[in-house]
Design a protein around this nucleic acid. Structure first.
Lengths: 355, 355
DNA sequence: CACGCCGAGGTAACCGGTTACCATCACGAC
DNA sequence: GTCGTGATGGTAACCGGTTACCTCGGCGTG
């Protein structure tokens, strides 16, 4: 087939061990020998077989990043950061899309595909609290952007609640009182949407402002189209609003588009704010006020947790013993319920200027 | 370490061959035996080692997709499509970012990392015509979105020239005559920008409209920020324009933002059009007229070309012979200079309505 | 001068699968 | 009763690296 290390060894008149020593920069190789080997490699156009190396080494040098949908700018930017952070640690990233479906996420966690890489960074969306066992079995995992699913795995969480609270307080501070909430997704039990909505409600409650649930609109997914549709629904319903909080930026941008179509001026008639600070938000018309999580920090931390944990032996104990002994496992797991919370900052822009 | 096939075999009281037969759905396995093996797999929580399988099979089931920057919506959407197309063929996708640098692209082509997957889909940006040797050596490659680099590799190209020509004709048809061109990138010899610019010029020439080069602005990269900066430059320069063609959508959207800041109405004062039809363009204010390449088709074709070509033995011959014999190689290569050109359609939206 | 140590590099086991080849066994046909 | 045939599954070589262990030669020291 293709040229192997043995071919190189034969041509250089040395053993495979020596070739291996050379390509891996092992110190004790005579300069002349090294030279001969390198020449042979060059002449034969030898390229090492990564798979074989992975097999002996027991590691592949690859990580899997699973996000709901890469075309959502937030996840594209996140992937960018993760790829960068992984590269800094010498890893390459394989990307899977879950579409936000719980079935896909579980399949990813349990399927043998998981063994293709050294670890998994999962940005869950459909996963529920009961799914902990799937998380804990198998190769190392770090969860992203979600609060603990009560599983003994690392997770790096977004400042969902605090961020939503901050942006809501900002809207209140500019005098808005009838604030619509776009993006609650039915069935999103413990997800980001739930937490952001909670931060929103907490801010209103703290300010003594009552929230009319008629101003909350559910969406099937967090996209521009869904945001637009939700805004249409809200306006068609005759809701009176002076502000709109999208649970993420694309929802807010989609809503802004519809406000424009309906002749409502932003921010004069209605203020709009979002969450994520995707790049498009800075260039929108008007530019969008939003919560900016420190994505680079999230990515770096997730990769570091994963890579640092790789040294340790895998957990992978049974997970099949009857539930009787699962009552209170000793604290063997790394940092069970201590999520790493990322920083955030509020980006105030044109879309929430005072009327 | 972890449980292996041998462990399963021992527990089930069979040989590894039988276990292998079971997991690979080999037909001649007695039902009772299969049952025993499956139970053993279940009891041990066995998961196959993908690396070992890849080594014996000689294939990994992974493809590499290399794009300049995932956070550019066009590439995120493309990646989405490629991942989907690959999945349909049973492949998983590993993503690399080149940042559009030629050095990174060449490194990717020549490094051993290339051996990590079965093939490479490269969306080149910095690559030049002289880089053909790097392309031809090593594992299978398909080039995306570029015209032939005169290398004997498959390439799936965007309708760059025809698309640019079509959108320019549209601008002319709405009465615009002083059209600015945003996005020519110095040094982008044969790239998409060059081809799109050519289509633009061809349309003007055909209509007998003269193009003032003072209305052409170079950019360092194709981003929102660069588009905005280019538009500022143009306006500061005092250029008189009644339309702007961005060589891609984000450049156009960045320009629109600046027109808004400067109090110029789109499309009343200035029409704006782009290229790519990213999702944001539909929801922009005003929505952006653009050229929509059939991305799904591009992705599917690229994946199919790569996967179908995988059956065949690798080329990988020398590539080191002196250039003398490179004059006119016989037609041994698959489809040397027959690029697969994707379809496109013109999406006419608000940003180019008649004044 | 004998001994011990270190640098250089060879030999072969091992990583965990796949699979060519072979041995059995049951069953139907002659 | 014997043989051919197909179903079933065992044995071991192989994929292409890494590396534990060993050998050998040269040099410094008591």
């Amino acid at each position: 087939m293709s040229t192997t290390m043995r071919d190189v060894a034969d041509r250089a008149g040395v053993s495979v061990k020596t070739v291996s020593n050379v390509v891996n920069d092992f110190p004790h190789v005579r300069a002349s020998t090294r030279e001969r080997v390198l020449r042979a490699i060059d002449e034969l156009g030898y390229q090492m077989n990564f798979t074989a190396r992975s097999l002996s080494l027991g590691r592949t040098g690859m990580l899997t990043l699973a996000v709901p949908k890469l075309r959502l700018p937030y996840f594209a930017e996140l992937a960018d950061e993760v790829i960068g952070a992984a590269e800094a640690r010498g890893y390459t990233v394989l990307i899977e899309q879950t579409g936000g479906s719980r079935a896909r996420e579980i399949e990813l966690l349990t399927s043998e595909r998981r063994r293709m890489t050294d670890g998994l960074i999962l940005s869950p969306s459909g996963l529920q609290s009961g799914d902990a066992p799937q998380l804990e079995a198998g190769s190392p995992v770090v969860l992203l952007g979600e609060r603990s699913l009560h599983a003994r795995v690392h997770h790096v969480v977004m400042p969902n609640e605090a961020g939503a609270r901050a942006v809501t307080e900002h809207l209140l501070a500019t005098g808005r009182r009838r604030i619509a909430l776009l993006g609650y997704t039915p069935g999103d039990g413990e997800g980001a949407g739930h937490l952001r909505a909670r931060g929103f409600r907490a801010a209103l409650a703290a300010a003594g402002v009552e929230h009319d649930e008629a101003r909350t609109v559910a969406v099937p997914e967090w996209t521009l189209a869904a945001g637009a549709q939700a805004m249409r629904t809200l306006l068609d319903r005759g809701a009176q609003v002076d502000a709109v909080l999208g649970l993420n930026d694309v929802l807010a941008l989609g809503a802004m588009r519809v406000l424009f179509e309906r002749g409502l001026a932003v921010p004069h008639d209605v203020a709009v704010a979002g969450f994520d600070d995707i790049e498009e938000s800075r260039f929108a018309r008007p530019s969008l006020t939003t919560v900016r999580p420190d994505r680079a920090q999230i990515a770096r931390r997730a990769v570091d947790l994963l890579v640092d944990g790789l040294g340790r032996g895998r957990s992978g104990d049974g997970a099949l013993g009857d539930a009787a002994d699962a009552v209170d496992a000793p604290a063997t797991a790394p940092d069970p319920d201590a999520p790493h919370v990322a920083d955030f900052s509020l980006q105030v822009r044109e879309s929430t200027a005072r009327p």
